[in-house]
Computed example of a mutant assay.
Amino acid sequence: MKLKNLLALLALYVYTAPVTAAPWTLNLYFENDLFADTDQSYTNGLRLAWVSPDIDTYLYDPQLPAWLREVNYWFTPLYPDPENIKDGVNRNLVFTIGQQMYTPEDRERTTLDPSDRPYAGWLYAGFGYHAKTKNRLNSVEVNLGVVGPAALGQEAQDMVHRARDIALFQGWDNQLQNEPGIQLVWENKRRLAKKPIFGRFGYDIITHYGASLGNVATYANTGAEIRFGVRLPDDFGTSSLRPGGDNSAPGNQDPRLRQGWGVHTFISIDSRLVAHNIFLDGNSVRDSHSVDKKYLVADAAFGIAGVYNKWKVSYAQVYRTKEFKGQEDAQSYGSFSVAYSY
C-alpha cells in the first residue's frame, strides 16, 4: 500500500471510527513568571495540543495493514486494564507543538554568569497516545525538537518584551548551542475518589506517577491533585504545562457535553527525581555552560477552573523549589490554560 493511501485511510478511520460523545479538544497552555512579577529562570512556556475523541476500535479493523493493527497491541502494557482492552478502554491521540525558554536573573549582563543557569530555548512537536478507563489513564508521549538558537527563544522573548516595553535580556549570545532533542514520557493517573458532599458539590483526588527519558530530560515523578467544586469535569485534572499533562478531554459525564457549567478549585503537587536536565546540565555532546542541579525538585500549584458549554478555563499559581545549587530564590510563575471541545 502506498504511503499516501495509508495516510488517507488513517484519516478516514480517525474521523469515522466508532466514538463516544466526546469531541476533539484543543488545549492552549501559557505560562510566564511575569504573573509572579519576576522575569528569570523558567520564564515562558507555550503549547498547543489537540486531543482526539475517544476512539474505540478502529485500530483492529482488518482493512488496515497487519503491522499497524499490531501497534495497538504494543501499547497493551500501558493500558489501565489490559485484560479488557477491547471493551473497557478508550483511546485518544494527542498532537502538540510548543516552546519553552529559560534565562538567568541578570538581564543586563552580556557575559556568561557561571553562578546562574544558562540561557536556553526548546522548540518541539510531539505525538501522544492515551488509554483510559473511567478512573485510570495511561499516557505515552514522544517530543522531538531542538534546543539552542534554532529554538527561537531569543526572538520570541524579544518580540514580547518589545510589545510590552520591557527591557531586553542582553546575554542570549551565551545560550546553549543547537542540539536535537528527544523526550519519551510515560505517566499513569488514577482517580482514587470522586464523591458528592452536598447537592452538586463534590471532590475528587487524582494521583499520578511517571518518568521521562531523553537528552532533554530524564526523571521520575509522582504527585496528586485534589479538586473541590460544583459539577467537576469528567477528565483527569488541570495540569500545568508539563509532558503528559494534556488530559482535559471531556469524558462521557462531563458538563461540557451537556451544555452545562461547573467551577472548582484545585491544589496539585508534583515531585521529580532528576537524573538529567539539559537546561541545567548543558549540551550533551558539546562544551557549554552548566550549573550543579539539585536532584529533587517539587512543584505546588493552587488554582481555579471553570467549564461552560464547550470551554474549560483554568489559572494556577505554581511554586517550584530551587533547581540548582547557588540559586538565590525558589521560583513562582502563573499557568493559564484554555480548552475548547468541538
Rank of each mutant, 00 (worst) to 15 (best):
Q177Y: 05
T207S: 07
R190T: 15
I197G: 04
Q183H: 13
N178I: 07
P180Y: 05
D204C: 02
Q175W: 04
G199F: 08
D173H: 13
W186P: 00
L192Y: 14
F201D: 04
L184Q: 01
E187I: 03
Q177I: 11
W186T: 07
L184K: 03
I206Y: 08
Y203R: 00
E187F: 00
G171H: 06
N188Q: 01
E179T: 04
D204H: 14
F198W: 06
G202A: 09
G181L: 08
N188M: 01
I197N: 07
P196F: 04
L192M: 11
G210E: 06
N178L: 13
K194Y: 13
G181V: 09
E187W: 01
G202I: 10
I206H: 03
I182T: 07
D204N: 09
K189F: 11
D204V: 04
Y209H: 11
I197M: 12
Q170C: 09
G181W: 13
G199P: 11
V185L: 02
G181A: 13
Q177P: 09
Q170I: 01
L184Y: 03
P196W: 10
E187V: 05
Q170M: 07
Y203K: 00
G181R: 05
D173N: 12
W172F: 12
W172T: 06
I206Q: 00
L176A: 02
G210L: 03
P196I: 05
F198D: 02
P196K: 15
P196H: 14
F201C: 03
R200E: 14
L184H: 00
L176T: 07
G210P: 06
